[in-house]
Design a protein around this nucleic acid. Structure first.
Lengths: 130, 130
DNA sequence: AACAGGAATGATAATCATTATCAAAAATGA
DNA sequence: TCATTTTTGATAATGATTATCATTCCTGTT
């Protein structure tokens, strides 16, 4: 596996971030280290790292994909106000009502909870109450 | 609510379809009735109908959105081979492990199961076994 | 029926995230 | 070292969706 300084940098950025960054945010961050890094390089390496299982790509139904350095199984809740993703663990046992997917070969499942995070919910409440 | 013949047609197409159509598929279908209908009109009306709660938009993480005439609560399982969506009902009770989303105000949740539908799984099995 | 005002239309351009392309540069390995 | 493969940066292309805008179509009121 060719490990260029670009690839290492991109990996470190995603791995060390506690947020769930977009490719563009990774790009901005990477430019601080390598001034002339290309956006294509960022996309290419994020995809490479995903294929290697080193990072996880979270594909949201709207808006750009996010990259997650935490590759352990978990799902996400997205705040529609600030856009932040929160990690959640699901009880996946007994999720489906029985017999619905007879013969369907499940490879994986993605769940996105949408709503307001604690901070944004409180902020909205304060605005309302004056 | 202005109900033009375009809007009525688009609604009928989605409502009468047992599939989950893309905007482009609705457009192709609509052109059979109204030859010079615009793609923008299709998008505009699908969005209008969604806002009115008459159809549901299913936003997949990859590929174009699908439109569903069934607006009762259900989730989808997508076949990665033929792209078809299957309806599934979830046991949403006790989905989350307790205490994870303290303060998070849940508006909704979208789940996409991905895998192979019965037909495609069987087809693949046949190809393998000769 | 005529008319005015707002809404919807079709055509087209613009947007945004992502991929593809490709020559030049860098890494790898015999 | 030198040849081969991989990766890079720059740029163009893609695909789905939205925005724009002049024209046309409704709809309700006289």
């Amino acid at each position: 596996m060719g490990m260029t300084k670009q690839r290492r940098l991109i990996f470190d950025i995603v791995k060390n971030s506690r947020r769930h960054m977009t490719a563009d945010e990774v790009y901005s961050e990477a430019k601080k280290e390598i001034n002339n890094i290309g956006l294509g390089t960022v996309y290419r390496n994020l995809d490479f790292l995903r294929r290697e299982g080193l990072v996880r790509r979270v594909e949201l139904p709207d808006g750009p994909d996010r990259y997650d350095g935490n590759v352990t199984p978990h799902e996400h809740a997205r705040c529609i106000s600030c856009g932040r993703l929160l990690d959640v663990r699901l009880k996946t046992d007994e999720l489906l009502e029985k017999g619905q997917l007879e013969g369907f070969e499940i490879f994986g499942c993605e769940m996105h909870i949408v709503g307001l995070c604690k901070e944004c919910a409180e902020k909205k409440r304060r605005e309302k109450n004056g």
